[in-house]
Amino acid sequence: MPEALPKEVTLLLHADDETTRDAAWERFVAQHTRLILYVIRKLVRDRDRGMDAYAWVLERLREDGARRLRGYSANGAGKFTTWLVVVARRLTVDFLRHSGGRTQATGTATGDGVGRESQVFRRRLLALAGDTVDLDALRDEHPAADDLLDRSERLEALTQAVQELPSMDRLLLTLRFDDGLQAEQIARTMHFPTRFHVYRRLDRVLTQLRTQLNGRGIDGDE
């Protein structure tokens, strides 16, 4: 359910004339500037570029008679603040792309440089689920043909088993093993009460995967 629109947004969307609209806009900006700047600073470290991004975000929010804000007012579900964080972040990313820059955020799920780490996490998943993988063999640059075939079969079986999981469990595995997020971050993102609930759920899902792999003839003794 959408929450009641903040007063300053209601005033802005229902302003009858330019003067009232300007005043309402000023009020909106005053009310939400710090939140918008906070979002921008997560992506843009340079202060001047940050202020350019801020101007860009405000411009986009106001254009076409505050079209985006009207969109929230018509379809918004949940808190206005959360929605504004999402939109301000998207507009900042948009600004960076338009201005030829890259995002400078740190610690996000899938940023640059995660690729190598991601491979490590996939190996860990394979090892945890299959309980059968020789990590040294995975590091071997010239594995034997049998090993390659074996690895490929395991990977295929694992991929298949993962695809059959409920989508929330797939997301859980992806955040943990593909993106390498910490359990605490996953708990916050997926609304687990604590990180321990994340570990317990992971354990359950991995056990399920292991059972499925065993059912397909891939057991821990190979």
Binding site: R89, R90, T110, L175
Partner: peptide, 10 residues
């Protein structure tokens, strides 16, 4: 995914 994690962190 990147976005939901980042928004949650914000």
């Amino acid at each position: 995914r990147d976005e939901i994690v980042a928004v949650r962190e914000v």
